[in-house]
């Protein structure tokens, strides 16, 4: 465990809390892609199956439970409690365009052809594209609420910090996980244009609106 890892997990947790606060306080999930939230719940479900089998640490177990809870509560709020405010016609990204390649790739490119390993690989590949429906929705509506941009900033920052964590671990313990690193790079690249808009607009107090 290193500082980048801790900052990454905190940033990830903060993103999820910001989203829950936004939906709960505004009693609305306008501008939020329900499909991305479903994909995140799927990522955590397929990745944290070892929650009950192998214990790593209190921190690891607690964070996995909290992440799973946040993901499912968010999906419930979007499709259950505040479904009347859900903007389904703008959340129109075809999930099969993501799920089919990700499932195919996780069967082709993995470390070992066992159910848990394939599910872990699936969750890594899926996480790298899970934000696309949300980014697609923002490009379609042309703007995003400021609190939603903070959510996206910390969500993008978390995997960027994980990249720093992997660089650190490579140099200190010769640890290198190719599938996680490659997927993490792809995932962070998807946020680049958003990061640019966030830093040049939102941090200057302007509203995020796409040209």
């Amino acid at each position: 465990m290193n500082v980048f890892r801790i900052l990454g997990d905190v940033s990830h947790l903060l993103a999820m809390v910001i989203l829950l606060v936004k939906i709960w306080r505004s009693k609305s999930c306008a501008g939020i892609s329900g499909k991305s939230q479903i994909l995140f719940a799927l990522v955590f479900t397929s990745r944290y199956l070892d929650l009950l089998t192998n214990f790593i640490s209190i921190y690891n177990t607690v964070m996995k439970v909290v992440f799973l809870l946040c993901a499912y509560v968010t999906v419930y709020l979007i499709y259950g409690k505040f479904r009347k405010t859900f903007d389904s016609e703008n959340d129109s990204f075809r999930l099969e365009f993501l799920l089919v390649p990700v499932i195919g790739l996780s069967f082709l490119e993995n470390y070992s052809f066992t159910p848990t390993e394939i599910l872990w690989t699936f969750s890594i590949y899926l996480e790298s594209v899970a934000i696309l429906p949300q980014l697609f929705m923002i490009s379609k509506t042309g703007e995003a609420e400021t609190i939603t941009t903070h959510y996206l900033f910390f969500l993008g920052l978390y995997r960027a910090l994980y990249l720093a964590n992997w660089i650190w671990r490579y140099h200190t313990e010769n640890f290198y996980d190719q599938i996680a690193v490659v997927s993490g790079v792809v995932q962070t690249i998807f946020y680049c244009d958003f990061f640019y808009l966030y830093i040049t607009k939102v941090l200057k107090g302007k509203k995020l609106s796409l040209p």
Partner: peptide, 10 residues
């Protein structure tokens, strides 16, 4: 190296 991989990450 990947055998070094421990699923200690989230």
């Amino acid at each position: 190296q990947h055998l070094l991989r421990t699923k200690d990450e989230l």
